[in-house]
C-alpha cells in the first residue's frame, strides 16, 4: 500500500483538481480514477465572486483527502506562508511544497525548496516536496525530515513523460525506503505504467486527465495503467538483453534436421 507519513492508501494515483471542463466532470473523473488523494491550491478570494467557497463545498462532497500545494511560490518565504495558510484552511499537516524557479520550465528551485522544507518540518508539517531527480537535493530533503519525495518526470503540463528515466531509476535505487511519487509531466497512461514499473510508489497527474477529450475515461485509463505498472513491478521484471532469446523451446522443433540438410535452393 502507498505510505504517506504513516497513513496507508490503496490507490497509487493522486489527482489534481484544476483545468476540468466543469465541476461535475472533475467529480466524475476523481471517482473514475479511484484516487483517494486530490491536490488543491490557495488563491486570492474576491469578495464578489467568492469562488473558493463553492470549490470547498465540491471538495467536501468528493470525500477524499486533500493535499494542498504552494503552486506559484518563488521563494521559501512565500512557500512557508502559503503552507501555513493551507494548513489552517484544509486542516492537514500535509503540504505539497512547490518553490518554482522560472515560468518556462516551472522547474523546482531546489535551494529555496530545501530551505522551506527545513522550516516547515520544524513547524510540524509533513512535507511532500516537488523536486527534480537530483540526488543531492533529495538527500538534503530527506535529511530535513521529508519521508516522501515527489520528483518530476518532465515539466508540468508538458506530457513528455519520463525524460530522464535513468536518473529516476537511480533515485529509486538510492532511496529504497522513501515514498517516491512521480509528480508532473506524465501525458499518457503508458508513461504512468512506466513510472510504476520503475518501482515508484505512486504518480500524481492533473493536465493529462483534465485536458483529455474525455477526462472521465482518461482517469479510468490512468487508474488501470498505474495498477498494471505496479503489478508488473511487484511481479519482478526481466532484464533487457541485446540479442534474441527464443521463448518457444528449441528442442523438438519440427523439421529441425531437415533444415540443416535441406537444399536451400529448392525453398
Amino acid at each position: 500500500m502507498l505510505d504517506i507519513y504513516g497513513e496507508r492508501f490503496t490507490s497509487r494515483l493522486l489527482l489534481g483538481t484544476a483545468q476540468y471542463p466543469s465541476p461535475a466532470t472533475l467529480k466524475q473523473a476523481v471517482e473514475a480514477s479511484s484516487a483517494e488523494i486530490v491536490t488543491a491550491s490557495l488563491r486570492r478570494e474576491s469578495a464578489r465572486a467568492r469562488a473558493g467557497q463553492g470549490f470547498w463545498e465540491l471538495i467536501e462532497r468528493l470525500g477524499v483527502r486533500v493535499l494542498p500545494n504552494t503552486a506559484g511560490c518563488r521563494t521559501a518565504k512565500e512557500a512557508v506562508t502559503t503552507a501555513k495558510m493551507a494548513r489552517e484552511l484544509f486542516g492537514t499537516p500535509w503540504i505539497k511544497l512547490e518553490v518554482i524557479a522560472n515560468d518556462d520550465t516551472l522547474q523546482p528551485e531546489l535551494f529555496g525548496l530545501v530551505e522551506a522544507a527545513t522550516i516547515l518540518v520544524a513547524e510540524g508539517f509533513q512535507v511532500l516536496p516537488y523536486t527534480t531527480e537530483d540526488l543531492s537535493a533529495a538527500e538534503r530533503l530527506v535529511g530535513a525530515g521529508c519521508t516522501v519525495l515527489m520528483p518530476w518526470a518532465s515539466p508540468i503540463g508538458s506530457a513528455r513523460g519520463l525524460i530522464n528515466r535513468d536518473g529516476l531509476k537511480t533515485l529509486r535505487a538510492y532511496f529504497p525506503d522513501t515514498t517516491l511519487i512521480i509528480d508532473a509531466g506524465l501525458g499518457t497512461p503508458s508513461q504512468a505504467a512506466g513510472a510504476m514499473e520503475l518501482g515508484y510508489d505512486a504518480v500524481l497527474l492533473n493536465t493529462a486527465v483534465a485536458k483529455a477529450g474525455d477526462p472521465v475515461k482518461m482517469a479510468q485509463a490512468f487508474a488501470r495503467a498505474v495498477e498494471a505498472g505496479r503489478l508488473g513491478f511487484e511481479a519482478g521484471l526481466i532484464e533487457p538483453r541485446d540479442m534474441a532469446s527464443p521463448s518457444t523451446p528449441v528442442a523438438g522443433t519440427p523439421f529441425f534436421k531437415e533444415l540443416i540438410f535441406s537444399d536451400r535452393s529448392k525453398t
Binding site: T17, S41, L42, R43, P68, A184, T207
Partner: peptide, 10 residues
Amino acid sequence: VEIVAPRQGG
C-alpha cells in the same frame, strides 16, 4: 493583506 481561499490545483 492577502486573503485566500481553497481553489483548484495540481
